[in-house]
């Protein structure tokens, strides 16, 4: 049986467009709002990434740090993250959700325990920022056994040799980091160059779903639409921060922005 992530890509391919993948942080700015945000943007997004916040991130830019900070200040715990997923899935059983975060939270929770909660709440995939190949082999195998996609990252610094191994061991999705940057940096590489690198990876195994993330905004998204999927994260986090500051409702604001993003890649 095809996974929900694989099905989402299949649908998009049928519609000849990339999958729109959003990233928001669980608990930003409250548990309730982050659930409402997921519900609202899921009408336009194909796959939802949900960050479980860590207070000592080594690869997040300012916007996502801000989101994590707001969520943690509101007392978000792992069990709340799973509650949010579970509630979301009750109304949207087919929309894939990918949790993204740092390994220490999983380590403290216990790998098996964590995966059990993933399964129970309906998580479809995991991105663990600080668990690269080959250190991730064991955990990725555990994920596979539970039919949870372990999503690996490839970066502009990744050697060809390594790329081949990562692609070979990949599950339903691979994530290409567009440039040398933490999340939310300004796109400092031309879209043309990014697509060139993207194609190099794609050629290793054209069947694999490869998405691009980091630095993608309304301005740049259409120039990258030949990819299988595009991730927009920091821009959304920034809009949440901005609407909070202007005392606007982040939920309606975000729904509108994601709708616009979608229109740019149709």
């Amino acid at each position: 049986m095809k996974s929900k992530i694989a099905l989402a890509f299949k649908n998009c391919k049928r519609e000849k467009r990339p999958a729109l993948i959003t990233y928001t942080v669980a608990g930003d700015n409250t548990k309730n709002n982050s659930l409402k945000i997921l519900n609202a943007i899921s009408k336009h997004a194909d796959i939802l990434e949900l960050g479980f916040p860590h207070n000592t991130p080594i690869a997040d830019g300012g916007q996502i740090q801000g989101s994590s900070h707001r969520a943690l200040k509101n007392g978000i715990k792992l069990k709340d993250v799973f509650q949010i997923v579970k509630k979301f899935k009750k109304n949207n059983p087919d929309k894939p959700i990918i949790l993204m975060g740092y390994f220490n939270l999983i380590y403290q929770n216990g790998e098996n325990n964590f995966l059990k909660s993933c399964k129970f709440s309906g998580v479809d995939g995991l991105i663990i920022v600080d668990l690269p190949y080959p250190e991730n082999k064991n955990f990725a195998y555990k994920c596979k056994k539970k039919s949870i996609s372990f999503i690996q990252l490839i970066s502009p610094t990744t050697s060809k040799e390594r790329m081949k191994k990562i692609v070979k061991d990949s599950h339903d999705m691979i994530y290409y980091i567009s440039m040398l940057s933490t999340t939310g940096g300004k796109l400092k590489v031309s879209p043309k160059k990014i697509i060139q690198n993207y194609n190099t990876i794609k050629r290793i195994n054209p069947k694999k779903n490869l998405v691009i993330g980091f630095g993608i905004t309304e301005k740049t998204i259409s120039s990258l639409k030949s990819a299988n999927g595009l991730v927009v994260g920091s821009m959304l986090c920034k809009i949440i921060a901005k609407s909070l500051k202007m005392r606007q409702n982040p939920v309606t604001k975000l729904a509108k922005v994601v709708y616009n993003l979608k229109n740019k890649i149709l």
Binding site: I58, P132, I177
Partner: peptide, 21 residues
């Protein structure tokens, strides 16, 4: 070989971008 001392301390829990450097 995983750069762990006593099998449990150390290692390289780093983002993919830093693997090569």
């Amino acid at each position: 070989k995983n750069f762990m001392y006593g099998g449990k301390f150390g290692g390289n829990f780093i983002p993919e971008t830093l693997k090569k450097p």
